[in-house]
Design a protein around this nucleic acid. Sequence first.
DNA 1: ACAACTAACTAACAATTGTTAGTTTTGTGT
DNA 2: ACACAAAACTAACAATTGTTAGTTAGTTGT
Lengths: 191, 191
Amino acid sequence: MKMATRKEEIMEVSARLFKEKGYNAVSMRDIAKAMGMKAASLYNHISGKQELLSTLILQVARAFTQGMDAVMADAISPVSKIEKIIELHIEITINHSEGLAALNNDWMHLENDDLADFLGMRERYESNFRSIIKDGIDCGEISPRHPEVILFSILSTLRTLYVWYQKRGKLDANVLKKDMVAIFLQGIVAK
Amino acid sequence: MKMATRKEEIMEVSARLFKEKGYNAVSMRDIAKAMGMKAASLYNHISGKQELLSTLILQVARAFTQGMDAVMADAISPVSKIEKIIELHIEITINHSEGLAALNNDWMHLENDDLADFLGMRERYESNFRSIIKDGIDCGEISPRHPEVILFSILSTLRTLYVWYQKRGKLDANVLKKDMVAIFLQGIVAK
DNA sequence: ACAACTAACTAACAATTGTTAGTTTTGTGT
DNA sequence: ACACAAAACTAACAATTGTTAGTTAGTTGT
């Protein structure tokens, strides 16, 4: 039985609103109105506004961490790892589209341990990605450009995927993956 | 004489704060404190918080529009145009670093005409970029991938440039440009 | 010295914020 | 039918928000 708890409903609604206007521009009363109830009633299900944000963000962050760990454990070439990372981002974009906006735009409003957890995961993620690129350059599989530029070119695109994915009328996930891999690996110039 | 007016100082300080915490998380009292004065005193120089945001964003948006117009007027190949666009973004990133954050993250808090102006400029910009890519594909200069995927891959990276540019200890603008052009045109795979 | 400006100040406002306390309604198992 | 828990409600709170009014200090031109 696919029974969504009331708490999960609140989280979905909040995620949608946060995505549209940002964490600070959404009031508890806004969330309540979208749920068809009064602000005070929300507190029967959640501890506060912060919980909404941190649950949302850390959930997605853990999905990334977990996915990256799997990629790192795989005994494949650096370029194949990058392909897997692109797949990972597409999959998370499809399944956590709303939470991704909060992660990208509102992580700085996390507090204390939640903020530290997030930053830790982000740093580990980037550092894993960086080492994949460096390995690729060292073994001659990847062109010897500045690793940081490669990293941020790919990562910026992957991180912003959620903005485009639904706006541009549902391009198929497989087409998207194939084209993105082609662009980053072979470039856009016809040969 | 390089005399910055008080209003310009306020705009710089606001831009810095908006970049760190986002428009809605910065109060007029925050801005005032950073300026070493009281919130009410700000109103001797500006009309309100909205003016700060719209001035900041529309200034940068106009720089983009102007730059794109110049590129479109140039009688060069599609790929050369894309190179020029990359240059344009790097230049704006260096000169308007702070305003870029507001443009990227807080444009939805613009009101009325300002919002309409911004959306108009953004749409025109993207549509110009899209037509350059399509021209390139039509004339065989660019690989026949989904144009939308090419567009958003490049544009996402360019738009997020400001986040990385200063964090990663000042990599030279020329190196940055050379590597980014190489990555998008030739890809990252060694040949 | 005096008038005119500029730019700071203090004090206060109405609205909105997240949240709590206490109460009533709704639904479920016995 | 009754008890119990879940989940909604009303009312209110202290704090913070953007902004205005009125005042005072500092600078400049004559």
